[in-house]
Simulated scan of single mutants.
Amino acid sequence: MTSRFLTSLATALLLTSCSGVASGGASVKPGTCVAGAKISQSEAGLEQTSLCIISEAKTHAFTVEIASTPPQQAKGLMFRTELADDRGMVFPFGEKRMASFWMKNTVIPLDIIFIREDGRIENIAANTIPYSTIPVESTGPVTAVLELRGGLSAERGIKPGDKVSWTSE
């Protein structure tokens, strides 16, 4: 077998077992989501990783793009016309701060999830309004933000206080 085939096979298995692809982004068994699993670059050229949200007895698995640089964070999910239920984008800040986002040039509604330093969800701005320039803000200092399809948090029962992890540490 070729190296390219083995890499593709490993990626497919990883996506199926860790990112919720097989389950449409729905809940997975506890322990089956492995946060921080490296995944090939997205179509937009961003690094991707697996992300887990633990909500009561349920674990929700996602494949997320990492917007790590200021230009990547400024663009975010602007101009995208769809976002699958098992996909999202995470914005790590590196330091604790109040965060403010807007929806200018963002075509689809998003759930904007603000994440504290301890990995817990501070607050969720649900179903944000496409193209709005009204700031969407954290209610306290955060070290990251996660964007998912609008309404998905409520559908999955994801709420403030739930634990979010996207690194292997």
Rank of each mutant, 00 (worst) to 15 (best):
A61C: 10
K29S: 14
F91P: 12
A35P: 03
A125G: 02
G31I: 04
A26M: 11
A37T: 14
S168Q: 10
R80L: 09
R97F: 01
C52G: 08
E137D: 06
G20I: 01
K38W: 09
S17V: 07
L13Y: 04
P70S: 08
Q73G: 05
F79P: 00
T11Y: 03
K75D: 10
V142A: 00
C52F: 05
I53G: 04
P70N: 06
V136R: 15
T11I: 02
S27N: 07
I54V: 11
A84M: 14
G88A: 14
F62K: 11
P92Y: 06
Q72D: 10
E56W: 00
N105W: 00
T167K: 15
E56V: 06
S138F: 03
T11L: 08
M89D: 13
G94D: 06
V64W: 00
R120P: 00
T133M: 13
L15M: 13
V64N: 06
G31E: 08
S3Y: 06
L13K: 04
K96R: 12
V64H: 01
S153D: 03
S50N: 08
V90S: 06
I115S: 08
R156S: 13
I66C: 09
S23G: 12
W102T: 02
L146A: 05
F93N: 09
I121S: 04
L146G: 11
S42V: 01
T11P: 04
D118V: 03
R87M: 02
V34F: 09
C33N: 12
F5Y: 09
M98Q: 05
V136D: 08
E147R: 06
E169K: 11
L9F: 11
S55M: 03
A74N: 08
S42G: 04
I39H: 02
R149P: 00
I39F: 10
K29E: 15
T133V: 09
S50W: 00
I129C: 02
R116T: 09
S55D: 11
S68D: 10
R120C: 02
I121V: 13
T106N: 01
T143E: 15
R97Q: 15
S153N: 06
N127A: 06
S55Y: 07
W166N: 09
V136H: 03
V142I: 07
A12Q: 04
S55K: 00
I112R: 07
A126R: 11
T63R: 13
P70L: 03
M89I: 13
I124Y: 01
S165D: 07
C18T: 09
R120S: 13
V21R: 09
G31P: 08
A26E: 10
E155I: 04
K75R: 05
H60T: 10
V164H: 03
L148E: 02
K96L: 13
W166D: 01
P92D: 09
G157N: 05
K38M: 11
R97N: 10
E56K: 03
S42T: 04
P70C: 06
A22G: 15
S138I: 04
D85H: 13
K75C: 01
N105R: 00
E147M: 04
P135I: 06
F5Q: 12
T143H: 07
L6G: 02
V142K: 00
A125H: 01
V164I: 15
A154Q: 13
A12P: 00
T133D: 15
I108E: 10
S168I: 01
A12N: 07
K29G: 14
F93H: 11
S132I: 04
Q72A: 10
